Simulated scan of single mutants.
Amino acid sequence: MWLPAGPAAQCNRVPAHRLEMAAEGSEVTKAERQHLDDVAQLGCIVCRNLDLGETPAEIHHIRTRQGLKRASHYDTIPLCPYHHRIGGYGEAFHAGPEIWQRKYCPEIVLLKQTRIELRQLRELKV
């Protein structure tokens, strides 16, 4: 699969992720911040699933079954900037969520994978 300029090349231009205000205007808690840091540490889940290697990740709050409200900080997956927002239609989630999920994987499935990988990561830290 050909990716223009490669997602890894584009990832290094963007910070790993931004922690902003939580929904309802409240601050991100210490536990949420640690969770988001752990998710970002996993690297882009799509790049890894495609055997493209490890790439720095931003935090993507899943949209599936959320309606109009923002997902919890615990309902997040790690995506590189390319697969998250700058890759264009069919490559970046925010450029076309439906086609992105058909092409790569439904985000709810990627959330389950992320949770499994987080458990493994945390077991290594103990």
Score class of each variant (00 low, 15 high):
95 A>C: 13
112 K>H: 08
107 E>I: 11
30 K>D: 09
74 Y>G: 03
76 T>N: 01
121 L>Y: 03
89 Y>S: 09
79 L>N: 00
30 K>F: 15
87 G>R: 03
57 A>N: 03
23 A>V: 13
29 T>I: 12
89 Y>C: 02
101 Q>R: 14
126 V>R: 11
47 C>N: 03
20 E>C: 04
75 D>A: 14
86 I>E: 02
12 N>K: 11
62 I>E: 11
111 L>H: 11
107 E>K: 11
77 I>C: 02
90 G>C: 11
86 I>H: 06
94 H>Q: 08
71 A>H: 01
85 R>A: 12
46 V>E: 00
39 V>M: 05
42 L>H: 00
123 E>K: 12
40 A>I: 00
106 P>W: 09
103 K>N: 10
3 L>I: 13
7 P>L: 04
84 H>L: 05
84 H>A: 06
61 H>C: 07
92 A>T: 05
103 K>A: 10
79 L>R: 07
114 T>I: 10
100 W>V: 09
108 I>D: 14
4 P>R: 08
7 P>K: 07
13 R>K: 13
101 Q>H: 06
96 G>M: 05
32 E>M: 04
12 N>P: 03
89 Y>M: 12
46 V>K: 02
51 D>R: 10
75 D>C: 07
54 E>A: 02
53 G>L: 04
17 H>G: 00
46 V>Q: 05
67 G>A: 05
125 K>R: 15
59 I>N: 01
57 A>K: 07
62 I>D: 12
94 H>P: 01
29 T>W: 10
17 H>V: 00
26 S>I: 13
45 I>Y: 01
81 P>F: 04
26 S>R: 15
113 Q>V: 12
93 F>V: 08
72 S>L: 03
14 V>K: 01
